[in-house]
Simulated scan of single mutants.
Amino acid sequence: MSYTGDVGEVSAVWRPVAEAPTIDRPLTQARLVGTGDVTRGQFGLFEWRMQPHAGGPAAHFHKTFSESFYVVSGTVRLFDGETWVNAVAGDFLYVPEGGVHAFRNDADEPASMLILFAPAPPREEYFRELAEIAESGRRLSPDEWTELYARHDQYMV
């Protein structure tokens, strides 16, 4: 997308930290900093906080969006499709569409990172659905997991 006007316009969107919704799970918290509805679908930006030894998703890929990870604090184990690395504050991993990846916190300390999705799929719906399943104690069948993942462009490897 390009801007075609000849003069700039007042169009910025301000979202104070208190207005960013959060999704809390037992060992992780996602703060939905910039969802697609705020960024006009161009990207989604989440702050992901993990307690020590918090697992993350198993290896997977997405067909319709890229995902980037920027470690803010602690040590995050990142998988680039081939190798697990210990990423620390300032480290960055870009995963294009179709790229296999995963993450988790294997350390004894909390860790946090920013996750950028581009363009902005409604990933908050995926994370909300996962949180609701966990909170309810509901167990999904393999077919139900496959359907949930397919609906959210999440293909497990």
Rank of each mutant, 00 (worst) to 15 (best):
F46N: 14
K63Y: 10
S68H: 08
G56Y: 01
V95E: 06
R138K: 11
S68N: 12
P96H: 06
Y3F: 13
L32F: 04
F103H: 10
R40M: 09
F46P: 12
I23C: 04
S141W: 00
V7I: 15
D143M: 04
L114I: 05
G41M: 02
A12Y: 12
D24Y: 05
W84K: 03
S112M: 00
D108A: 12
L32Y: 05
T146L: 07
P96R: 04
W48V: 15
G56T: 02
S68I: 05
T83N: 12
Q154D: 12
V157P: 12
R123W: 10
V10D: 14
T4E: 14
P21R: 11
G34P: 00
M50I: 04
T28Y: 11
Y94E: 14
P21I: 06
D91Y: 09
Y155R: 08
P52C: 02
G98H: 02
A12C: 09
E125C: 10
P26I: 06
G56P: 02
F79Q: 03
A134T: 14
V100P: 03
T35K: 10
P121Q: 13
L148V: 02
I115N: 01
M113K: 07
Q154A: 13
A20C: 15
V72I: 10
A59F: 05
N105R: 03
H60V: 01
R31T: 12
E9H: 15
Q51L: 11
E82Y: 03
A150F: 01
Y94A: 15
H152R: 04
Q51V: 03
Y149P: 00
H53N: 13
L116T: 12
G74W: 00
F79Y: 11
T83G: 03
A59P: 13
F46G: 11
D153L: 01
V85L: 10
R31W: 04
P122V: 01
S66Y: 00
F43V: 11
S2Y: 11
F69M: 03
T64E: 11
D37Y: 01
L148M: 07
A111Q: 02
L140P: 06
G98A: 05
P110V: 01
L27Y: 13
S141E: 03
P57C: 06
D106P: 02
A150L: 07
R49W: 14
G34K: 09
A150T: 13
V100K: 09
L140R: 02
M113G: 05
A59M: 10
R25N: 13
F117E: 07
G98T: 05
E82Q: 13
H101S: 04
A12L: 11
F103E: 07
D106F: 01
M113P: 00
K63L: 14
G44M: 09
G56F: 01
F103M: 07
H60K: 06
H152A: 06
F103G: 00
R40N: 14
S112D: 02
W84Q: 03
H152K: 03
W14H: 15
V157H: 09
G5H: 01
P142Y: 06
R40S: 14
Y70H: 14
R49S: 15
Q29I: 08
V72K: 09
E109D: 13
H101P: 03
G90R: 01
G44R: 04
W14Q: 13
S68M: 10
R40L: 11
E124A: 04
V17Q: 14
D108K: 04
A131W: 01
Q29D: 08
